[in-house]
Design a protein around this nucleic acid. Structure first.
Lengths: 193, 193
DNA sequence: ATATTTCATAGACATTTGTCGATGTTTTTT
DNA sequence: AAAAAACATCGACAAATGTCTATGAAATAT
């Protein structure tokens, strides 16, 4: 759990006390899942958000052709989950599975709301997290609607170097909204410079 | 200001009292801007978020070729601003200007934080708003990295019918990350069905 | 150690989307 | 009312990206 505490302290405006952390800790459930296992499957309701203590995960949906379209990637200190399903209690269109063996900390919607009203630090965390997520989402949208494949990849490598080491190219290509073949071409071109 | 109050009540878990609204109201500054005027220009720090009481706005950045790339559109009851610049106090890469004459309510970063800690309803609002924004952003990302131009437009018309009436096609095309010519083709194809 | 699966690259070709210049219409400005 | 600007569409061509099949290397499972 120390990982979560360190993480919270990064976001809180003041250090989290032992008692405070004890309250927070009690609302999370540890869970381990092995490579290739699902945290969430299409059609299910995403009852939990998962803090990634260790491991790597991906979120994707499967289109009419049966192709996996990766929409999110997660490693340590990221939150995995389908926010829409989690908030609205609607069936998810996404799958989330483990790309590596994972250690997670789960929290339910109910406990999120409870913690949020009970614990100042947690409320703050959520606000800042969403803020950060929104900023990141805006950047990703800007990039995906107006950059070429080449620039998108450059950008990605620059801002997420760790992801490049943890996931193979065809996964990253899909995350960027291009095919593995196009990514391969882009990399070749870059190499020649 | 009634517009803001109605809006807040949609999000608050309980109706907002007169005193409470008075506190909130005091933190906002009304501002009118005419068509084509800027709310924010590239290089400036986005010191305010703007609640759109009336009118229509767009947010875009200008690339090396001098092309405007629309990244966001706003009409009544939307929040306009560059969140990154607003939160981090960094110069914005975006322009935000009025597409129609606008009535806005501005709030500064400082006042946002103040209100947030003073007023339960406002804190709740921010949480829910960010939540909704994140969900919408996820959808837009999913759409822009994995749908064709045709499906993206269909999707857009379905979820934002009002925008279609307020903005010309070349603006919407840019928002979707395609050219006006491609959108014109897509529409022609759809018409023939 | 061997067999199997996953991964990255390549080339040929198809499809989608972008670019550009032209045209006619509508809207706005003067 | 006339002139100017903004808008939507079109066609021809170019560029970017997708599709598919094949190949060899690397990683993983048996």
């Amino acid at each position: 759990m120390q990982e979560l505490r360190d993480y919270l302290n990064q976001y809180a405006s003041t250090l989290i006390s032992d008692e405070e952390f004890e309250v927070i800790r009690r609302h999370f459930t540890p869970k381990k899942i092995r490579k290739k296992q699902y945290l969430l499957q299409e059609g299910e309701i995403g009852k939990h958000m998962a803090f990634v203590v260790k491991g790597a995960m991906r979120k994707y949906y499967i289109d009419e052709k049966g192709t996996e379209n990766i929409v999110d990637l997660y490693i340590e200190n990221w939150w995995a989950g389908d926010r829409e399903s989690f908030v609205m209690f609607t069936p998810s269109i996404y799958h989330i599975d483990a790309w590596e063996d994972c250690e997670l900390l789960l929290i339910s919607r109910e406990d999120t709301l409870k913690l949020c009203s009970q614990c100042r630090a947690f409320n703050e965390l959520l606000l800042k997290l969403d803020e950060r997520n929104n900023i990141a989402a805006q950047k990703r949208i800007t990039s995906s609607i107006s950059f070429t494949a080449e620039k998108r990849y450059e950008d990605f490598v620059g801002s997420h170097p760790y992801f490049v080491q943890r996931f193979p190219q065809h996964i990253i290509a899909s995350y960027l909204g291009i095919t593995k073949d196009t990514l391969s071409r882009v990399r070749k071109k870059t190499r020649q410079k």
